[in-house]
C-alpha cells in the first residue's frame, strides 16, 4: 500500500505545480493531457482546483489594489521629451523587417515572417560563430556571393535547411527586388557553381544573380 501511495503523492505534487497554468489557460501539450487525466481520475483534483481558484483571486485582488499614480503618463511624457530619438538600428534583421513591412498585401505575411525567421537564424549563427560584424553586416568585398530571391511561399524550414546544407549564409539584404546577398563558401568556380545550383534547384528560389565568383 505504501509503495502505491508514494507515486500518487509525487503525481499530486507535480499536478499542484501545474495547476496555476491550467487555470490561466496556458497549459498545453503533454502537461495538459496529463493534468486532464489526473483531474478526471483523482477526487482530490476538484478540491485542489477550488483552492487554486482562491489563490488566483487573492493574487488578482492584491495586484489590482496597487494603483499607479494618476500622473504617471504625464511624468513619463516629460521624461520622454528629454530623450534623444532612438538610435537607428542597422542590423540585417531590422532592415529585413522594414523591407517586409513595406511589401504589398499580396505578399503572404507568413512567408515574410518565415523569411525573417531565416534571417534571424542566420544572424544568430553568425554572431555565435564570433565572426563579428564584418561578416554579418558587411562581408568582405571580395568574398564569393550570389544575389538570391526566395519565393514568397517558400517554407522557412526548407530555406533554412538548404542554406545550412550548403554552408551558405544570408549576409545582407533584402535589396530591391527582394534579393538577399548570400555568401557562398567556395574557393573555386566549380564549387561556387555547385552550391549555387543546389540552392536554385531546391525549388525555393524566385531569382538568382551571380555576384562574385571565385
Amino acid at each position: 500500500m505504501a509503495m502505491n501511495a508514494e507515486p500518487k503523492t509525487t503525481l499530486r505534487d507535480e499536478m499542484e505545480s501545474l495547476l496555476p497554468f491550467y487555470l490561466n489557460g496556458t497549459l498545453d501539450g503533454d502537461d495538459l493531457v496529463r493534468f486532464d487525466a489526473w483531474l478526471a481520475a483523482d477526487p482530490a483534483g476538484a478540491e485542489t482546483l477550488a483552492a487554486a481558484e482562491a489563490e488566483f483571486a487573492a493574487s488578482m485582488v492584491a495586484n489590482e489594489a496597487i494603483r499607479p499614480r494618476a500622473d504617471a503618463l504625464s511624468r513619463f511624457s516629460v521624461a520622454l521629451d528629454r530623450q534623444a530619438r532612438p538610435a537607428p538600428v542597422n542590423t540585417l534583421l531590422a532592415r529585413a523587417s522594414s523591407w517586409f513591412a513595406s511589401k504589398p498585401a499580396w505578399l503572404p505575411w507568413a512567408a515574410a515572417a518565415a523569411m525573417l525567421a531565416v534571417v534571424a537564424v542566420q544572424a544568430i549563427t553568425l554572431n555565435a560563430a564570433g565572426d563579428g560584424p564584418q561578416v554579418a553586416g558587411a562581408p568582405a568585398v571580395d568574398a564569393p556571393f550570389a544575389l538570391i530571391a526566395f519565393k514568397a511561399d517558400a517554407p522557412v524550414e526548407r530555406v533554412a535547411a538548404i542554406l545550412s546544407e550548403t554552408g551558405a549564409t544570408i549576409v545582407d539584404g533584402p535589396k530591391p527586388g527582394g534579393f538577399f546577398r548570400v555568401a557562398i563558401p567556395a574557393t573555386d568556380g566549380t564549387a561556387y557553381d555547385a552550391i549555387v545550383k543546389r540552392i536554385t534547384d531546391s525549388g525555393l528560389v524566385d531569382g538568382m544573380m551571380p555576384g562574385i565568383r571565385p
Binding site: 496555476p20 497554468f21 490561466n24 496556458t26 497549459l27 502537461d31 489563490e55 493574487s59 488578482m60
Partner: peptide, 13 residues
Amino acid sequence: IDLAYYHGRSVAE
C-alpha cells in the same frame, strides 16, 4: 504566483 495568476504567463514565459 503573480506571474501565473495575475499576469497570465505560461511556464515558458
